[in-house]
């Protein structure tokens, strides 16, 4: 899969990503979580580890609610 650890930059703003509290919604519920995002345009970055790990776990919990 993806090779090595990448340092992502926003292609549009050409800026490094910073930690940012971001709102996530699922199954009618809203959660706030700190993730990396572009400080310029706010574009949010979700890694595979997060999508298939913590997020998938939370998704399942919310589906079961």
């Amino acid at each position: 899969m993806g090779e090595g650890r990448k340092i992502w930059r926003c292609a549009r703003c050409d800026r490094e990503l910073v930690a940012k509290k971001t709102i996530f919604t699922y199954m009618g519920l809203t959660l706030a979580h700190e993730v990396e995002a572009c400080p310029g345009c706010g574009k949010v970055f979700v890694s595979r580890e997060m999508a298939e790990g913590k997020m998938a776990e939370t998704e399942q919990q919310l589906e079961d609610k």
């Binding site: 971001t22 996530f24 993730v35 706010g42 949010v44 595979r48 999508a51 998938a56």
Partner: peptide, 13 residues
């Protein structure tokens, strides 16, 4: 690589 998730995110708080 490719992956997906079900949650939606807002751009920022």
């Amino acid at each position: 690589d490719a992956y997906s998730h079900r949650m939606r995110f807002g751009r920022e708080e």
